[in-house]
Write a protein that binds this DNA or RNA. Structure first.
Lengths: 139, 139, 139, 139
DNA sequence: GTGGTCTAGACCACG
DNA sequence: GTGGTCTAGACCACG
């Protein structure tokens, strides 16, 4: 399945992390399923106009998180879902990203309830966006 | 108003960011109000035992964010809490942060409820970590 | 604590992996303890005569495994022990390295018992090299 | 003697290495004896449905390891099981592999007994995965 | 064609 | 001084 990648330079978020986020999102939403092939390192590097090493770095992080896997000489593929991290580590990571969310959101002057409501909406947006999977596919 | 600042050098979070976060929190929580004077760069540097450059860098970021302002020769003050962003812009920024959070949390295999619960805890953790410690004021 | 690093080029094992192995060994044996500072990326790169990027790649892998951590602007330090991976993942990784061990050892014409004995010796060698840790075993 | 070869293209392990491993195993287990002829490159390539180059590369590695030998115009044969390495050299190589294994396993927080048990299972898994298929199968 | 490793070197962030 | 990101490009392994 084809996915539009967008990368911005000149923002604090590193390019390789932007790529990681977009692949993660595609997998989390079900746009990419286990077994699907990702764009090749070189192809994606050309598409978003960065060095292939940068894409390779992003893919490497996704491999280590167990989300994708490399097949020598053939490319990268979405992996079967498995739990790589211990529960303590998962908690640690969730707390860390929530902490930075809260810090940013409070500066934006949102109340607790507003933040929680926004999170609820984001979650159900994700869930329903992955609702399609019915038979229609086109490539 | 004087705030207890705690800075740890044994963790990955940069010192300057810890300072930024604590000032943000104090303002977000109302411990510091518009017009309040912040500790001087030198005083705070001595208090938390870091290089004054580090404090200056933290204050600089807060100025750029519009949270505090420098008054030449007099020091740093909490800025008027005028809303810098339009509601639409605030919403956009919050959603962007949430979008990234949600994809990471879902990939970590947390349920919606687990994520929301963890957010609630992070929010109340943030509150209790602010200036007052212990019980809430109820003025 | 100072550790002699040795790196060979011209062998199939990548340089960055040789570095990972040597750091891991130093930590596993207790030569390096939580809180100890590692050689800086540049210093180690000079010592073993490789590009700093290669050392950085090795350190990055160790960070992801939770063995060391970076403190911005200060360097890398041995982390407190924590379990990063799920039990299933730990098993997966152990099986994978045992599989390659067995494959190599059988080609070298060792019997099962010889392999197991050699493993026992290697384990007790490791334990005794880190001698301090807790009381003696008395098999 | 004919062996069932199984090659999977959906896993990270390269095809040529899967072939190498299976031949090694067959020889290590005695399913193939010195002087036995291996399937031709082309025949094996057809059997497991891969490119003949891949099989040729696998055979090449086995030749370099001294496990099989090419007889011009006639095909590949299992080599005499003369011992290529001195006992000291074999020991050195085994210890080197073990050294790396042990540091990784200890870092994964396995106990000595768990590692040894897992080794036993890997050894018997290797046996049962060889030509005979005694009855045991796992996945 | 695919990915994996490594170098040389630039530029930035942090203290 | 420290680490982090990124580029340009070489060379190798795998199929």
């Amino acid at each position: 399945m084809l996915l539009e990648f967008h990368v911005s330079t000149g923002i604090p978020t590193p390019v390789f992390r932007q790529i990681v986020d977009q692949v993660r999102r595609a997998i989390a939403m079900g746009s990419w399923q286990a077994g699907d092939q990702l764009p090749s390192v070189r192809a994606l590097a050309e598409q978003v106009v960065v060095n292939p090493n940068t894409v390779a770095k992003a893919y490497g992080e996704l491999v280590r998180d167990g989300l994708i896997e490399a097949r020598q000489g053939r490319g990268y593929f979405v992996a079967d879902r498995r739990q790589v991290y211990s529960d303590a580590e998962r908690k640690r990571r969730l707390d860390q990203i929530l902490w930075s969310l809260v810090s940013e959101a409070l500066v934006l002057n949102f109340t607790d309830d507003e933040i929680i409501d926004a999170l609820r909406r984001a979650l159900s947006g994700f869930r329903s966006a992955s609702g399609h999977e019915e038979g229609d596919s086109h490539e």
